[in-house]
């Protein structure tokens, strides 16, 4: 759909001052442009860093909900396993008690895993250099 591609390309070219004949002027222009780019890059990097520190707007909500559900899921799965172990083995309260505690530990493990920056989701990455 050519009409959606707005023809700003031509306007952008025409807004640039006519190309100078002198190569020295070209160099000057390039330096000027590089200087301006450097300022922009710096500003962008600073912005990004600040965003990372505060976590953006939605990122914080997402993170909180993620951690809460990770923790709850560990306990739920632990309780479910304990319940079925009890049902199958007939060890009524003990399986549930034991696996609820395991589930609690797994929930904590889930949270630690998702907040620690060195681990992705499973193992600690730097272990790769220790060899298998």
């Amino acid at each position: 759909m050519p009409q959606e591609r707005d023809g700003t390309g031509d306007e952008a070219v025409s807004s640039v001052p006519a190309a100078p004949e002198d190569p020295v002027l070209w160099d000057k222009r390039r330096e000027e442009l590089q200087r301006r780019l450097a300022i922009h890059r710096e500003r962008n990097a600073a912005e990004e860093q600040r965003e990372r520190k505060t976590g953006g707007t939605g990122q914080g909500i997402a993170e909180g909900l993620k951690l809460a559900s990770e923790f709850a899921a560990g306990i739920i799965v632990g309780a479910a396993i304990g319940y079925f172990v009890d049902k199958l083995a007939g060890t009524t309260p003990f399986g549930l008690i034991f696996f609820l505690m395991i589930g609690f530990a797994a929930g904590i493990r889930n949270i630690l895993r998702s907040v620690s920056p060195t681990t992705t989701s499973g193992q600690i990455r730097p272990k790769d250099d220790a060899g298998s």
Binding site: G74, I76, G78, I102, N110
Partner: peptide
Amino acid sequence: LVVLIEVVSFLSRPVSLSVRLFA
């Protein structure tokens, strides 16, 4: 004990993944 915890933690992943979105 640690392996048991890791297994439960692994099993809890689909639960947390689905419950979070649904809830």
